[in-house]
């Protein structure tokens, strides 16, 4: 079974985020970029499935600026077999990415799409669900455990109330949560091999997808600075404040 893993190039999560002076977006000039951590987890899981003999091929795909190729190479260095690059300078929205991914799924015919539950830049948490809907496939989101058997995936989902176990028919789109697995280091031999692994390039036009943004960003602002907390004298005062000021009880 072929596994397709979409990966996104994002601002390194350990870098401080700065909003551009004109408030048109986040300042990415000279910023260190990295693979979205949830995508890394998805790649790790896909490579493990291959090592277990469950997956036959792992294909990483990335849509975005030309440098997304570096993100694909990171995936290849972790053990993926080949890459698909969809270069575009358009700021892609989740629906556009989902449509691009659907076009790649149509070409590649994978048995499973494993992807991050969300990217740490926009935190949209939409692409996986939209892709499943466009494909008419089953979906399992926020998974922290997965087992594949007999044309189905047994997945554990992290939900508000705890954990939920579902049986998902394959082919399916699974979006991974933080606790699924720990991504490996790209090993030196795999880094060297990654250089020779193929990356195919398809433009959005080749794939017949219109990626024109449908949303207009009017302003991006930093979240307000956190205020210092206060000390209360008694439990009664605490309850009163929670009830009357914070309005949470």
């Amino acid at each position: 079974m072929k596994v397709l893993v979409p990966v996104k190039r994002v601002l390194d999560p350990y870098v401080k985020v700065r909003v551009k002076q004109d408030k048109s977006g986040v300042d990415l000039s000279n910023a260190k970029m990295a693979m979205n951590p949830f995508c890394e987890i998805a790649v790790e899981q896909a490579v493990r499935l291959k090592e277990q003999g469950v997956a036959s091929e792992v294909v990483v795909v990335s849509a975005g600026p030309q440098q997304s190729q570096e993100t694909l190479r990171t995936g290849l260095a972790m053990g993926a077999d080949r890459g698909v690059l969809i270069p575009t300078d358009v700021a892609l929205e989740p629906l556009a990415i989902a449509k691009l991914l659907k076009a790649v799924v149509d070409k590649e015919d994978p048995g499973l799409v494993l992807m991050g539950k969300q990217a740490v830049d926009g935190d949209n948490n939409q692409t996986g669900q939209m892709l499943a809907a466009l494909l008419g496939w089953a979906q399992g989101t926020f998974i922290s455990k997965v087992e594949l058997q007999d044309g189905a995936a047994q997945v554990t989902r992290e939900i508000d109330g705890g954990l939920e176990t579902l049986q998902v028919k394959l082919p399916a789109v699974l979006t991974v949560d933080l606790r699924l697995c720990e991504p490996r280091y790209a090993s030196l031999p795999n880094i060297m091999k990654a250089k020779k692994k193929p990356i195919d390039t398809h433009s959005p036009e080749d794939l017949g997808v219109d990626v024109t943004p449908r949303l207009q960003v009017s302003r991006v602002e930093e979240p307000p600075a956190r205020q210092a907390g206060i000390k209360v004298e008694s439990v009664q005062e605490l309850v009163k404040k929670l009830h009357e000021e914070a309005k949470v009880i």
Binding site: A34, E70, R73, T74, A77, A186, M192, A194, K195
Partner: peptide
């Protein structure tokens, strides 16, 4: 090069 960046990233994480 991309390889050099990958080596640096991976060793840094290690």
């Amino acid at each position: 090069t991309t390889e050099q960046e990958l080596v640096v990233d991976s060793v840094r994480k290690f």
